[in-house]
């Protein structure tokens, strides 16, 4: 019988699932587009994972991470719900011992994690601006009519990258259009865009951080060879891309689940059959006070299993009481 740990990274753009065996080896890894339906995507992921794993599988622990980690947590009954920064750091420092810098660029988030002696000592995340994340690259690739998978390859053909204003995604786009209308070559524009995004990342997220080798680049955007090249050029350092670069958050969540349940504690995993269960989410605006919080409710087969979004804890707290009481 295969025993192992399940990690789920419910991100804004992709939902990733991995299955680690007891030794911590990655047995299965799934990368799915969230497409605005996190619950359905997690269920699809579980179904696909159950199909690809041998029929008799014991899930010893489940970890959830990503911006949808709480959602993924209540749906699957995760043992650990952890933020993305810690999850990524755990995964990378386990798979690439000695790593000192992690560059992580996902769909809507970009992060920089600084480690020393395998411990996180500093980190930064993009704030209100999503310039330089995967969504923007996606959008530009679509606008230029090139598949996102080809983006990096084309950018690498550039001989003299065009300078593009990368401070803001909206202005970067106008600048790109301007350069394109001036007649610059597509590879030069794409390479220029990669360099602009890297510049923006290093100036915002990377402001004041000490970037030391080994540097690891992960997240969905690490698939883009143009971005890797631009990072190496800007940093003057070699940048490594781990084999499971696009599911590292999920790997970290699974490793954390292993840590949590290693003392023989039983997992609270609800089983792969949650893929068939009917989940619904809905929300309402609480009118109890002038804060008018938007409360979210998650229902499993019509029964409310979780609520959040209330500042005072009136709704989420009431549910927690009922559970324990």
């Amino acid at each position: 019988m295969v025993k192992g740990y399940l990690g789920i990274d419910a991100g804004s753009v992709s939902t990733n699932l991995v299955f680690l065996d007891e030794a911590g080896r990655i047995r299965e890894a799934l990368y799915l587009r969230t497409q605005g339906r996190p619950i359905a995507t997690i269920q699809t992921g579980l179904r696909q994972l159950a199909e690809s794993l041998p029929p008799r599988v014991a899930v010893r622990g489940v970890g959830a991470t990503g911006s949808g980690r709480h959602l993924a947590g209540v749906i699957t009954g995760a043992d650990v719900v952890k933020n993305e920064i810690t999850s990524h750091a755990v995964a990378t420092s386990t798979l690439i011992p000695g790593v000192q810098t992690i560059l992580e660029i996902g769909g809507q988030d970009s992060k920089l994690i600084i480690l020393r002696n395998s411990l996180v000592v500093d980190f930064a995340m993009n704030t209100v601006c999503a310039a330089g994340t995967g969504s923007f690259l996606d959008q530009q690739a679509a606008r230029l009519g090139i598949p996102i998978e080809k983006f990096g390859e084309i950018a690498l053909r550039s001989r003299s990258p065009v300078r593009i204003a990368g401070r803001c995604a909206v202005f970067a786009e106008s600048d790109m259009i301007h350069k394109q209308q001036m007649g610059y070559d597509l590879p030069d524009i794409l390479a220029g865009l990669c360099e602009a995004l890297v510049r923006n990342y290093l100036n915002n997220v990377g402001k004041g951080k000490e970037i030391l080798p080994p540097v690891v680049f992960q997240g969905g955007v690490a698939a883009n060879a143009g971005m890797k090249h631009a990072f190496e050029k800007a940093l003057g350092l070699e940048v490594q891309i781990p084999p499971y670069y696009n599911v590292m958050g999920a790997v970290g969540a699974a490793l954390l689940a292993r840590e949590k349940t290693v003392r023989g504690l039983p997992s609270s995993f609800k089983g792969f059959q949650v893929a068939q269960v009917d989940f619904a989410s809905g929300g309402f605006t609480c009118d109890g006070c002038p804060n008018t919080c938007e409360v979210v409710e998650i229902r499993e087969e019509g029964r409310v299993i979780a609520r959040w979004g209330d500042r005072c804890g009136k709704w989420s707290g009431a549910l927690a009481e009922r559970k324990t009481g």
Binding site: K82, N83, E84, I85, T86, L119, V120, F123, M125
Partner: peptide, 9 residues
């Protein structure tokens, strides 16, 4: 997210 990661640290 930042707060959680900070507390982990």
């Amino acid at each position: 997210t930042r707060l959680e990661a900070f507390l982990d640290m």
